[in-house]
Each structure stands twice: as structure tokens, then as C-alpha cells.
Write a protein that binds this DNA or RNA. Structure first.
Length: 266
DNA sequence: ATACCTGTTTCCCG
DNA sequence: CCGGGAAACAGGTA
């Protein structure tokens, strides 16, 4: 479930290794997650370095190591970060294992849509510095949403919510959750939203992000009970607010779930 | 066997 | 040039 909160929790797991040296680096060179980085550079630079920095931003993560080394990680669809014993033997879908004195840091990704970046530099990498305003930052304001809706007026709102340039960390289930709470039909054209619904959208984005961080983000558990999340994949799923039968269809290229009683097209 | 899938990039179209 | 949408990526699961 690598969306905002799950990514934050994955990052927190690797924080276990902060201020510890990397003793050895194990790589599965055939994994596509290395498609944009030099595997040799990982082998040459990471051993004997110390993990000094670990931060998540939306679905992106950045890990800093002594020696001006930066390792970027994106979990794609099925990636995960785990902690294992120091002597852990990599399994089939493990792409990267960093052995440390007290544990191994493991990046695993069966479907390999994830991505590892690696670079050397005094400053944090350019791609990291140019990431958009986080949804839970004070600078993430209603005006920002308004301009995005205006610019992409013809796109279904569901598709726009998944656009990481505006809503970094938003994923499929979070977007459905937000639209359900704001009572907006996922296929509604972004430009058609009136001021009242725009404000509802903004508020519910904050609500869902905060709620997800409090639950999934801090304990790795499920989102709060009563959320659409718990019903959205089941056949015969029931809207927790209206008790009507939920509907699923592909909107903006992704399977979407909504409550026909609450979310209507205008 | 078939048809899914919590994501992103690339390519094609207007 | 831009915006929008479909396909492609790959393997596990139902």
C-alpha cells in the first residue's frame, strides 16, 4: 500500500539503521528497480558509509549516507522496506540489502515498478529539492488546488488527484476516500467543481492525510474504521455513511469506488 | 487459464 | 508547444 502514509512508515523502518555503518551491500542486479542507477557505484561507495538521513516526501524517499551519498527510493506498486537480521539471506524479490551491525535494511519489490536512485553530492539531489509542496505542509493551500483544477479543467477529478505534481503521496485508495468524504463523483470534470465542493475537497484531503498518517503512518496498521477503505474492494461493499451498495468502475485509468447515493455528477 | 492490481513513464492523438 | 488518455512495465493473487 505504498501511498503517503505507508511510505512514511516504510521510511521509519529504515530509520532503525540511522547512525550505523553499512558493512556490506547485496544487490540483485537483474531487478528493474536499478534501471536508472549505476549498480557499481552502490558497491563502490556504500560499504563503510553511515546512514545519516532518512526522509519521506509523498511517495519519494531519500536516504543520506556519510561521504555525500544519496540513495533515493520509490516503492512503485509493490515495493517495501523492511528490517531483517544482520545475517539475513536475500529472498527472490529482494533488490537491495544493506547489512549493518544490528540489522539489515531490505528493499523488496516483486513487480519492480519501484526505483532506486543513487548519486554523490554535497547537496541533496536536485530531484528531491524540486518536489512539490507536501499535502500536510502549511503552504498547501486551497488556492493551490484551485489553480490545478482550472489548469486541468477537462480531466476527471479522480485522475487529477493522482497527479503527483499537485498531490504528492496521493494514491488510488486515498483519492477514493477523499472524494467519498467530499461527496464528489470521481468522474466529475475538475473544472466543473464549484467553490463549495472545492473547499470540501481541500478539507477532506487534509482529513484523509492526517487520519492515514495517524494510523497507517505511525503503526503500519489499517486506516480508521468507518473509512471507505474497508469496503472498497469487496463485491457487495457497503457505503459506511449511506448503507447503499458501492459502485466500482475505471475512471482516469484506475479502478475507482464510490457511493452512488452520496457522490453525484453535477 | 483469465483477469485483475494501493504507480509511473512513454507514446500517440488532437 | 500543451493536455488527455491508453499502453507498457512484471509478477503475484484470486
Amino acid at each position: 500500500m505504498p501511498e503517503l502514509a505507508e511510505v512514511a512508515h516504510a521510511c521509519a523502518r529504515w530509520k532503525t539503521g540511522l547512525n550505523q555503518r553499512v558493512q556490506a551491500v547485496l544487490i540483485n542486479p537483474r531487478s528493474r528497480v536499478f534501471r536508472e542507477c549505476q549498480i557499481n557505484s552502490l558497491y563502490e561507495n556504500l560499504p563503510k558509509s553511515t546512514l545519516r538521513y532518512a526522509q519521506a516526501h509523498g511517495k519519494q524517499m531519500l536516504f543520506g549516507f556519510s561521504g555525500n551519498l544519496w540513495l533515493g527510493a520509490h516503492l512503485g506498486m509493490t515495493g517495501s522496506l523492511d528490517i531483517q537480521a544482520t545475517e539475513y539471506a536475500p529472498s527472490k524479490h529482494d533488490a537491495l540489502v544493506l547489512r549493518q551491525p544490528r540489522q539489515s535494511l531490505v528493499f523488496r519489490d516483486p513487480r519492480q515498478f519501484g526505483r532506486i536512485r543513487f548519486e554523490k553530492g554535497k547537496e541533496k539531489p536536485e530531484w528531491w529539492k524540486s518536489l512539490p509542496v507536501p499535502m500536510l505542509h502549511l503552504d498547501f493551500r486551497a488556492e493551490l488546488i484551485r489553480s490545478a483544477l482550472k489548469r486541468h479543467a477537462k480531466r476527471p477529478i479522480k485522475a487529477l488527484l493522482l497527479d503527483q505534481r499537485y498531490f504528492p503521496g496521493m494514491g488510488n485508495w486515498m483519492a477514493d476516500e477523499v472524494l467519498w468524504r467530499a461527496r464528489i463523483h470521481p468522474a466529475c470534470k475538475s473544472g466543473d467543481l464549484e467553490e463549495g465542493l472545492r473547499l470540501a475537497l481541500f478539507r477532506q484531503i487534509l482529513f484523509v492525510c492526517r487520519g492515514a498518517m495517524r494510523t497507517v503512518g505511525s503503526h503500519g496498521g489499517d486506516p480508521p474504521s468507518g473509512w471507505l477503505f474497508h469496503q472498497r474492494w469487496k463485491d457487495g461493499g457497503i457505503c459506511p455513511k449511506s448503507n447503499c451498495l458501492l459502485v466500482r468502475d475505471t475512471i482516469g485509468g484506475r479502478t475507482s469506488c464510490w457511493s452512488p447515493a452520496l457522490q453525484v455528477m453535477n
